[in-house]
Design a protein around this nucleic acid. Structure first.
Lengths: 141, 141
DNA sequence: TATTGTTATACTCTATAACTATA
DNA sequence: TATAGTTATAGAGTATAACAATA
């Protein structure tokens, strides 16, 4: 079971990353764009906390996405230290595209499952997560 | 589903590595010892293939395990290039200990599952693996 | 000429902590 | 004095290819 979960988890991550690469995004960038989209105008540190990366790493990540024209750093009106992060229209459409891809990926994982089988699997996995004391955040259900 | 599997896989790996560390072993070392135990006297390259690491990485890995007295390099009787890998008695008992730990870990993941639930979960995961065209090697069932 | 093991090198990734400018 | 962002540096890990001995 442990081996199965590890292998499946690793393989789904790896292949989703491959699929996502067709949009020019890495998984972490996808997560970052999603976090910015959920609430525009957040500081870099706020977003860094949500995607669980150190702020120093955040800088290069944002640099890159800004160079690609997917997000913007805008000055904070009252605090000149902080940069507010916003999606550009290009970033927004990239996120939409990646989100669509993620949906397809979900579907392909569960190909041949009927709804009750799919929810049964999620329920059993949820119990494993409980046994680990892990609470999963369902960005994508 | 994809997110759930990724998170669960990553977390089970991470925590098992932590647990395993109490025996002084890393997961890769555990895998290597297991491969050697399955058939003693294999060459480094043969074992490297089984644990899926490049031969250059293998050298330092074997160096370390040899320094710790867990495995031995022995000369091949007819080919002076190859080194035959063997478990020492210390290595054998370390492997036994780690294997026991892995069994406990398996059990704790499925705590509260009755046998049919457990096999149902494995079956559903197997179907996901099929959808990925992935065939899982069950070292530990 | 090919193969086993070894070594060296270069590269990525990341974490830590120092630094700046603001507050 | 504390905080947001930035930069610099150092460390782990890994992959690549060159190398020596042997086949």
């Amino acid at each position: 079971m442990s081996y199965t979960l590890s292998q499946l988890g690793q393989e789904t991550s790896r292949r989703f990353a491959e699929l996502l690469a067709t949009t020019g995004l890495e998984p972490r960038q996808f997560a970052l764009l999603g976090a910015v989209a959920r609430q525009e105008g957040q500081s870099q540190q706020a977003v860094a906390g949500q995607v669980a990366i150190p702020t120093s790493t955040m800088v290069a990540l944002v640099d890159h996405l800004e160079e690609e024209g997917l997000i913007e750093r805008r000055p904070h009106p009252s605090d000149r230290r902080t940069r507010m992060l916003h999606l550009t229209s290009k970033g927004s459409s990239a996120l939409d595209k990646a989100t669509l891809l993620a949906g397809n990926w979900e579907a392909s994982l569960c190909a041949g499952f009927n709804p009750s089988e799919r929810s049964r699997l999620l329920e059993l996995l949820g119990r494993v997560a409980d046994n680990l004391g892990l609470d999963l955040l369902y960005y994508v259900s």
